[in-house]
C-alpha cells in the first residue's frame, strides 16, 4: 500500500506552469523530502496534496483513495504551515484542540486530548500561553501538535525548520524523525536544504522547473546523482567535462597530487576554508573550470594563489546523464 500517489499531476497559474506532470509514489510510513531551489514547484506540490491548491490536471491518491477534488479536512492529511499559522487569540491548548472542536468533540474530552498532544511535543507546562508568549521553537511544537491531533495518515510540512536558528534546527530535525517513527505515519517535508533532506529522508525527491529530476534514497542520490543539476544542487560534488560527457566526482574523494595514477585538475588556489574537521580548497584551472576538495584537517597549509593539482581515482567518477 502506498500512502500517497501522484499521477501526472500538473499545476498551472494562468499560463505559468508550476508543476509539470509529475508522478510520484510515497511508501507507507515513510519520511519524504521534496527538495529543490525556490520556484521549483515543491511547495505547490505539497499544497496540492493538502488540498489548499486545486490540481490543474492529474490525480492524487491517498491510501489508494482518489482525493483529487476533496476538501483538505476530508483527505486524511494535516498540514504544518511555514509561518506556523497559530491562531493568535487562542492559547496553545485551544490551538491544539481546534481540530477536535471543529469535529464537535466535547470540551472536556478535547482539552484532555490537547494536553496529551502537548505532552508529546514536551510543551505540557506551557499549555495556557498565547502564541505571542512562546518562542519560535515552542510555536512550532504547538503547530506540530495541532496538526497531529487530527490523526492524519500523512503529515505535510512546509519548510518547517527554516525559521529556526541552526542549533534548534538540528534538534528539531531529530524530533521530527522521532515523531515520524513513533507515530508510524508518513511525513512529507518541503525544504530547500539538501542537508535537511539528507538527514531526514527515506525518499528524497529533487525537483527543478516543475519536474522531478530524481527520486531516490539520499545515499543513492549522493552516490549516483542523475544529472549535473542534481550533483550541483545537493553539493559535495565537482561537475567536470570528459569530452562530450559530464562526470561528477565527490569533493571528499579529491586529494592533492600525490603522484598516484588518476585524473587530474591543475590550476591555482582561489579559496581556502578551514572548517574544523576538514579543509575546503577551491582550485581554478586555466580555462576557468573550478573544482573543490574536502581535505583532511591535517593537510599542511596552502596559500591563496599557489599552484595546486587535485587528483582522484578514476573509479570514483560518476557519469552524468546529459
Amino acid at each position: 500500500m502506498r500512502d500517497v500517489e501522484l499521477v501526472a499531476v500538473t499545476k498551472r497559474y494562468g499560463s505559468a506552469l508550476a508543476v509539470d506532470g509529475i508522478d510520484l509514489a510515497i511508501p507507507e510510513g515513510s519520511y519524504t523530502c521534496l527538495l529543490g531551489p525556490s520556484g521549483c514547484g515543491k511547495t505547490s506540490t505539497l499544497r496540492m496534496i493538502a488540498g489548499h491548491e486545486m490540481v490543474s490536471e492529474g490525480e492524487i491518491l491517498l491510501a489508494g483513495r482518489n482525493v483529487t477534488t476533496l476538501p483538505p479536512a476530508q483527505r486524511g492529511t494535516a498540514m504544518m504551515f511555514q509561518s506556523y499559522a497559530l491562531f493568535p487569540h487562542l492559547s496553545a491548548r485551544d490551538n491544539v484542540a481546534f481540530g477536535l472542536r471543529m469535529r464537535g468533540v466535547a470540551k472536556a474530552e478535547r482539552l484532555r486530548r490537547a494536553d496529551e498532544f502537548l505532552d508529546l511535543v514536551h510543551l505540557g507546562p506551557l499549555a495556557d500561553r498565547l502564541p505571542a508568549q512562546l518562542s519560535g521553537g515552542q510555536q512550532q511544537r504547538v503547530a506540530l501538535a495541532r496538526a497531529l491531533i487530527t490523526e492524519p495518515r500523512v503529515l505535510l510540512l512546509d519548510e518547517p525548520l527554516s525559521a529556526l536558528d541552526p542549533f534548534l534546527r538540528a534538534k528539531m530535525r531529530e524530533e521530527l524523525k522521532r515523531l515520524q517513527r513513533e507515530l508510524g505515519i508518513s511525513f512529507i517535508h518541503v525544504t530547500h536544504s539538501q542537508e535537511e533532506a539528507m538527514a531526514l529522508a527515506d525518499l528524497a525527491v529533487v525537483m527543478d522547473h516543475g519536474r522531478i529530476v530524481q527520486a531516490a534514497p539520499p545515499r543513492q542520490i549522493f552516490e549516483r546523482p542523475a544529472s549535473a543539476f542534481v550533483a550541483r544542487f545537493i553539493g559535495g560534488h565537482n561537475v567536470l567535462a570528459r569530452g562530450a560527457q559530464a562526470i561528477s566526482i565527490r569533493t571528499d574523494r579529491c586529494r592533492l597530487d600525490d603522484g598516484a595514477e588518476g585524473p587530474r585538475h591543475h590550476g591555482h588556489v582561489r579559496a581556502v576554508e578551514y572548517l574544523g574537521a576538514a579543509m575546503r580548497i577551491v582550485v581554478v584551472a586555466e580555462d576557468g573550470t573550478e573544482a573543490e576538495a574536502m581535505l583532511p584537517d591535517s593537510t599542511p597549509p596552502i596559500a591563496l594563489g599557489e599552484a595546486a593539482t587535485l587528483t582522484w581515482n578514476a573509479a570514483d567518477e560518476h557519469a552524468l546523464a546529459a
Binding site: 494535516a78 498540514m79 504551515f81 509561518s83 499559522a85
Partner: peptide, 19 residues
C-alpha cells in the same frame, strides 16, 4: 495561512470566519 489552517483542521468557511 490562518484560514487555510482552519480549513485544514476541518472548519467550514463560516466556522473559520467565526472562530
Amino acid at each position: 495561512a490562518w484560514e487555510e489552517a482552519a480549513r485544514d483542521l476541518g472548519a467550514s468557511p463560516w466556522k473559520s470566519f467565526w472562530h
